[in-house]
């Protein structure tokens, strides 16, 4: 119990520091007033401009010290109000923008992660039990090919072959379609993300499986007369999952960032593309909101990984 309390405290501390750093950096390194008003912000001799400047300053509390502004932002944020966009005349509010876009990216990343796991585990089992043989070596070559291939190239190849040539998969994402067809439209983008990730997961799990397969208890399991398949699934897989789930957890955060390219190619209006746009426009409230969402997702997933550890291995139960 104490362990979990510590974990939660750590997570909260982590989120606070991520937000403080991002908030501070954006306000110190950039100029919020300029980002809101553009060139007007420097035009202090024109009374019309001054009026706008005053209005913006009071609306965004720009005269308050940094710490106070951070406090104001934080108290809004925890209540679900992520502020007002600097660009697009402030419409829609950041919370609404995120609410609209996050489910798309979340679905994409979750689907990709599930696909990667579903591909990696059987693949690793198949190669680990035949380590060093021809099929294993061919698989290794494929792995390197997938990992070395840039995301956009893979996306274009998959799209060309599966959507354009064969016509099996839809070409792009249509935000107004019913849920079921939107999910179907997500499959190809998710596969694009999943393939190289699956290759990495597979390499990792294969190595751990090979180590496990040399353990005495595997020989013991064979000596019981269990079939090779049963030895692999029942005895070898579970003790080999440690670094696998660790990396799956760590990888989820990276996937949200990595989804940008895929979202662009498949025209999915998710938070990945929002992030790029908002960074380019220096639209700080949006950037901050997305950074925080990624951080929260990261923290939650790694908390989940910690729980999974103790499910997988009774020796680490507290």
């Amino acid at each position: 119990m104490r362990f979990w309390l510590q974990r939660v405290a750590m997570a909260v501390l982590l989120l606070l520091s991520v937000s403080a750093l991002t908030f501070g950096a954006m306000n110190i390194l950039g100029d919020p007033l300029f980002n809101i008003l553009g060139p007007v912000a420097g035009d202090v001799n024109n009374p019309d401009s001054v009026k706008l400047i005053e209005k913006a300053k009071s609306e965004f509390d720009l005269d308050e010290p940094l710490v106070v502004r951070y406090g104001l932002w934080l108290s809004d944020f925890v209540r679900g109000d992520m502020g007002v966009q600097f660009s697009s005349d402030g419409q829609p509010p950041v919370s609404d923008l995120i609410k609209e876009r996050l489910p798309r990216t979340a679905t994409l990343v979750l689907l990709a992660q599930l696909m990667a796991i579903a591909i990696a585990i059987p693949w690793a089992l198949a190669t680990a039990s035949r380590a060093g043989r021809l099929s294993d070596r061919i698989s290794t070559m494929n792995t390197f090919f997938l990992v070395a291939m840039p995301n956009f190239a893979l996306a274009i190849i998959l799209k060309f072959v599966l959507s354009i040539k064969l016509g099996w998969m839809p070409l792009t994402y249509v935000a107004n379609d019913p849920l079921s067809s939107r999910l179907w439209q997500m499959v190809l983008p998710a596969l694009t993300i999943a393939l190289p990730v699956a290759a990495v997961f597979q390499r990792l799990l294969r190595t751990d499986l090979i180590t496990t397969l040399q353990q005495d208890f595997i020989l013991m399991a064979r000596a019981k007369g269990l079939s090779r398949r049963r030895v692999l699934f029942r005895h070898a897989l579970r003790p080999s999952l440690f670094s696998f789930i660790t990396v799956v957890g760590l990888n989820t955060g990276a996937l949200i960032g990595g989804s940008i390219v895929v979202e662009t190619i498949f025209r999915i209006p998710g938070i990945g593309s929002s992030l790029v746009e908002s960074v380019l426009r220096e639209d700080f409230p949006v950037v901050l909101a997305i950074v925080m969402i990624v951080a929260v997702a990261f923290v939650l997933i790694n908390l989940l990984v910690d729980i999974l550890y103790s499910i997988i291995d009774p020796r680490v139960r507290r």
């Binding site: 005495d216 020989l219 013991m220 000596a223 005895h235 003790p239 291995d313 009774p314």
Partner: peptide, 15 residues
């Protein structure tokens, strides 16, 4: 059937 040398490592730790 076989009884192995090392009982510490010959039983599956997660079963």
């Amino acid at each position: 059937a076989m009884i192995f040398q090392d009982p510490m490592t010959s039983l599956n730790p997660v079963m």
